[in-house]
Design a binder for these strands. Structure first.
Lengths: 155, 155
DNA sequence: TTAGGTGCAAATCTTTTGCAGAAAG
DNA sequence: CTTTCTGCAAAAGATTTGCACCTAA
């Protein structure tokens, strides 16, 4: 974890930015919640535990900055708030979501399924892909299992 | 076009809703601009030509209603506004976007590339897919061609 | 006549910005 | 010192809501 923070510090410094205590606290929250897709408000509340004096505007500014540096990915699931995800090297470009319409959970899958499609896009549409995003809406394995269990119980 | 409006009228009526003049004007704007991905504000301004007395709130309410009925698809490209797309039967479920990071254009491709992946999701992740969304960010064919031309001109 | 619809204005919610002071090199 | 950063409060934008009136079965 410290190694990853150091790396982000270097990324910031190479562009003339500082890793201030507020930014570090924000990054730590993202690191500690890598599984989730936190909104700015979520991050703000978690950061407040570490640094109670921080302002929401600073969180927004930090997330925006990290987003520009491609340290986090800013995304939008259509619920009116932007969500932010730490972008580990291996996740880069191979990062899809399974969004459960029943319980709201967002799971990630890290397989790289789209490279062949991107090649087709270049050839057939003359479109040079920089990045992509693939989300599936449906019923997650937890809800499927729960339902299977309930109907087995004769419910 | 009238046939499609009739169909939407039936969809509304089957749920107890009416196709009012305002709603019809809104649907017509969507039909006439099927290639685009209009924001609520865009729709509002276009609808005003047909029905100047309409209010923005009505447009929002109409788009929301049509969205619930799956007549339009509400989506979000990360620029802070929701965009709405008429959902033709054939487009249903096979509707991907090519978003140009240079000029901002959003093109659509209608191929069905994901069915095999959805089968894998069901088997490997026990995830039952209802819908999906696939967006590519990159450079569109227009920008690619323009750039090719400019470098050919020795620019 | 009754439920559904509408326009308007006000309210709400997320995100951004201006500014004066604080921190870091 | 000078640039970058911060917190606060205000502003901005998109969307939603309350309400009184309207309209069609």
């Amino acid at each position: 974890m410290e190694a990853r923070i150091d790396k982000i510090k270097q990324q910031l410094q190479s562009q003339g930015y500082k890793l201030t205590p507020q930014r570090e606290a924000t990054v730590r929250v993202l690191l500690e919640n890598e599984e989730d897709h936190l909104s700015a408000e979520d991050v703000f509340m978690l950061v407040k535990d570490k640094a109670p004096e921080i302002g929401l505007a600073t969180v927004y500014r930090t997330l925006e900055l990290l987003s520009e540096l491609h340290v986090v990915e800013k995304m939008n699931f259509g619920d009116g708030v932007a969500r932010y995800d730490l972008r580990s090297d291996s996740a880069y470009h191979h990062h899809h979501h399974l969004i459960c319409v029943k319980c709201g959970a967002v799971d990630e899958i890290m397989e790289d399924w789209l490279t062949p499609l991107e090649e087709r896009l270049a050839v057939e549409y003359n479109f040079k892909v920089h990045d992509h995003r693939l989300d599936f809406q449906g019923i997650c394995h937890r809800c499927n299992e729960k339902e299977a269990k309930e109907s087995a119980d004769g419910k």
